[in-house]
Amino acid sequence: MRRGRFTGYWLMAPAALWLALFFVIPFYSLLATSLFDPEGSVLTGYDVDYRFANFVDALDQFWEPLFRSLWYAAVATAICLVLGYVLAYAIAFKGGRWRNFLLVLVIAPFFTSFLVRTLSWKLILADDGFVVDTLQFLHLLGEDGRLLATPVAVIAGLVYNFLPFMVLPLYASLEKIDTRLVEAASDLYASPTRGFLKVTLPLSKPGVVAGTLLTFIPAAGDYINASLLGSPNQRMVGNVIQNLFTSTGDYATAGALSVILMAIIVAMVMVYIRTAGTEELV
């Protein structure tokens, strides 16, 4: 537009190069790793012998944590959608001049360390803690029932940690809605509920799609919540991949599992976007 024809290229080049080298090309390395001969080791090096059997082995051994990850992430995303919608709606339509301040509060949990925050859930859900005692008093939880080391604790942690990722895109699309449209619906004798279902909700769809994706994807790959709040029975696919890479040193299987996780997520995202029918996602 202005200055030389090449200014755009020069400005873009450093970031583009960085992302190409350390984001795009690594995917190729990962794919190569997943086809390694599993007999090698980090020290002696690996041979790429197009061993697609790695994928079969990985699925055969670890289908359970893989499936569990997707399931926990889906449940956590659904809960986040409900909680996040309420909060985003309240800020967008009832926040008034406090909107920006409330938004800062939404991202404020990010300011303490992820791990320290998750550890504090360990205290909140502890066996003789307030929450467990109350639930036991209400007989919602058995005498020696507990929350830690159960799926409930892991999902609660996931919901908590990824809720801001749901609220921000929801807020962004709710805030754009022209309130006159909702008023028009009410002028035409729509009840508030009907007005919400027929006007507000459809108009906020881009936010719903973006929010669910931004919550589901990191939740499916997370293993911090499963490790700190769960037991080995709640092991997620991230735990397995991390262990295979750092402890066992089985790069081939770890690589294959990573590729499978990414492929499933990409496939789900594409189907989801197609059925949800939004182009203005980004």
Binding site: P26, A32, V42, A220, G221, Q242, A254, G255, S258, M262
Partner: peptide
Amino acid sequence: MASPEIVMGSSLLALFVA
């Protein structure tokens, strides 16, 4: 922003090792 961290992390590790 839309890739799981575990996948980005393991890809980078694969690159560094390679």
